[in-house]
Design a protein around this nucleic acid. Structure first.
Lengths: 345, 345
DNA sequence: TGACTAGTTCGAAACGTTTAGATTAGCTTT
DNA sequence: AAAGCTAATCTAAACGTTTCGAACTAGTCA
């Protein structure tokens, strides 16, 4: 900017005024400045600007996995929304590691992000303190955290799972395997209560041996399903609390020479784009990813636009059961587990 | 930092020296500074630091779509690599829009990113000029661009498609539908030459009517497949040049009451994690996403670590044909297109 | 004619760091 | 005791902006 000022024979203050349109600059000087800018190929240094202005027009976004299609979709929507609003997005993936995420949040705050969107991977001792200290608005998405009272948008996990399990019960299933993640994040807790209540509601006893917990990855789903399907009285249906784990579960079914839905019905949390073109077409609980992303972005943008003092807002969206063909009525089960032509290769 | 200095009764220079370990600071002052930092909850302002140092420890990453599993995987790997190296990643998605991407690159450069990773969505007039002006290292990934001679990592697209098409030809297919994206990006051009050469090699005439071009989205694949399968002499196999389009193609097959592989064999570019658990298990060309991400990151990190003058490097990786069960020998085709029990719902 | 106003332009401080070079204090050395 | 080191600390400039308030120039009004 100094160079531009010199070339145009004006002061830097005038160049700044011209660029930002803060004061009227005469025709003559405008011309000279414009030309100098072009000749020099000047670009305003956003870092210096940020330092002075105290705002970076950048937000931080931290999610557990970007390869999980749910988060992919949400991140994509959020990214677009902030793009439109003229903000850049710094993306961090934490691989479900709490220390990792704390570290990343620290990094983002050091970089003076204007706001933070967090899908929290664990509990919130550090988060709580940080959020209070750093004076930036935070929006939690997908996962709430005890004691942190920021804006948040979550799903009605309880209700969604209640419906899914009820659907299985109505099909006649009584032994429903349940594959979950650890209970240190709210969705897993809430989904579990949905399972409980659906059973209770139908008068079916809860059986702890039908519940397997993993770390949300595909491999965990595989292990869990292997165990469940090896029980002497194996479940007729399996529910997986997220998408990567259901892939593992399907592999377990395949490797055991079973097939879905003939031998075991399957439902999973989170939909994916090609669920209805391959077989079995998985019955899933679809989260309204578009809405989740948009609401999350708009909550944060609202704060960034100055609405700092409003009480914290909690948005709860509804999931939707997408019934396809991965679940069968239980009486139609093949009684003898035949090795069906499951796959070659 | 000023506050810390005052509280510890030292100068800011000393605080800086202590924090960065640039000079030895006496036991006594260290203690006072440490305490002051804790009491105040001081965090170093990375923006001010960047301004002074001229480096932001941030890189920019711009890709067409993050929902395409190929890019998801690559982004994920790159993100992890830079995370480990202590860099933040600014992510932009361009939705295949050239102006959009130019604008985003401008934004990233304004923010003084230390480096840029670009999966280019079109040609490179603007890119070329920008890259030369802005003095930051650039690595191109997946797509090369004419006239831009930066480091890049790409796939041997020609060879990969040659193999895939040859595989179909060996199965007896002669009419192979080809769904591509526009030819303004190198992978689409190179994949097409692979198709050409495979046909040539097998002595099969090239038929322009079997080639349909779209904009890489699912909807384009749907339209293209619809057209191909409505030809009076419809193809016995379809190749899709990317993943989203094959989903559309599969939907078209389903909607026409056809089935894969019985009525039409299908191969697509880009693998996805659950390709082998659902049916048909798609035969795909798997890109080594892990390697692509790692190589891309390491090329850029190498430049960032000071190796600025080395001649530009071009890494070419090999794809791998993942044969599953979405392709059948052509003589086994059902001669009369029966409406197979494709799906309910 | 002198004071006031409106419209432009500019000088300089400030944002929060880093760092070169100056200063100081405490030891050695001769 | 003076000179020379070394180690620790500080002063002040710099990074590239924005912005407050001052200054200048015309034009307007009493």
């Amino acid at each position: 900017m100094l160079h531009v000022a010199e070339a145009a024979r004006v002061s830097v203050a005038t160049v700044s005024a011209y660029i930002n349109g803060t004061t009227t600059v005469s025709q003559e000087l405008s011309g000279r400045i414009e030309q100098a800018i072009r000749e020099i190929g000047y670009k305003r240094n956003a870092i210096a600007r940020s330092l002075k202005l105290g705002t970076t027009r950048t937000i931080g976004l931290t999610v557990p996995h970007i390869t999980n299609p749910f988060f992919t979709d949400v991140v994509s929507v959020i990214q677009q929304a902030f793009d439109r609003a003229g903000y850049a997005v710094m993306l961090c993936c934490t691989d479900e590691d709490l220390n990792n995420q704390d570290e990343q949040i620290r990094l983002l705050l050091d970089r003076m992000v204007d706001g933070l969107i967090i899908a929290r991977v664990g509990d919130g001792a550090y988060l709580k303190e940080t959020v209070e200290r750093a004076n930036v608005p935070v929006v939690l998405v997908d996962r709430e955290v005890d004691g942190v009272d920021s804006d948040r948008v979550v799903l009605d996990n309880h209700q969604a799972v209640f419906e899914a399990i009820t659907y299985l019960l109505e099909l006649g299933h009584r032994r429903i395997g349940y594959i979950t993640g650890a209970f240190n994040i709210t969705p897993m807790r809430d989904r579990m209560t949905g399972y409980h209540e659906a059973l209770l509601n139908a008068g079916v006893a809860f059986d702890q041996s039908l519940v397997r917990s993993g770390d949300l990855h595909e491999a965990d789903g595989y292990t869990a399903a292997m165990q469940l399907l090896s029980l002497h009285d194996r479940p007729t249906a399996i529910f997986s609390a997220n998408n990567p784990m259901v892939v593992g579960a399907m592999k377990a079914i395949r490797d055991l020479g079973l097939s879905c839905p003939e031998d075991v019905s399957v439902i999973c949390f989170d939909d994916f784009p090609w669920a209805d073109v391959f077989n079995p077409q998985l019955t899933t609980i679809a989260q309204p990813v578009q809405a989740i992303g948009e609401q999350t972005a708009s909550l944060l943008l609202d704060r960034l636009n100055g609405n700092r003092e409003a009480p914290s807002r909690r948005l709860v969206l509804k999931g939707r059961l997408m019934v396809r063909n991965s679940c069968r009525p239980v009486q139609a089960l093949t009684s003898v587990p035949t090795v069906v032509a499951a796959s070659s290769t």
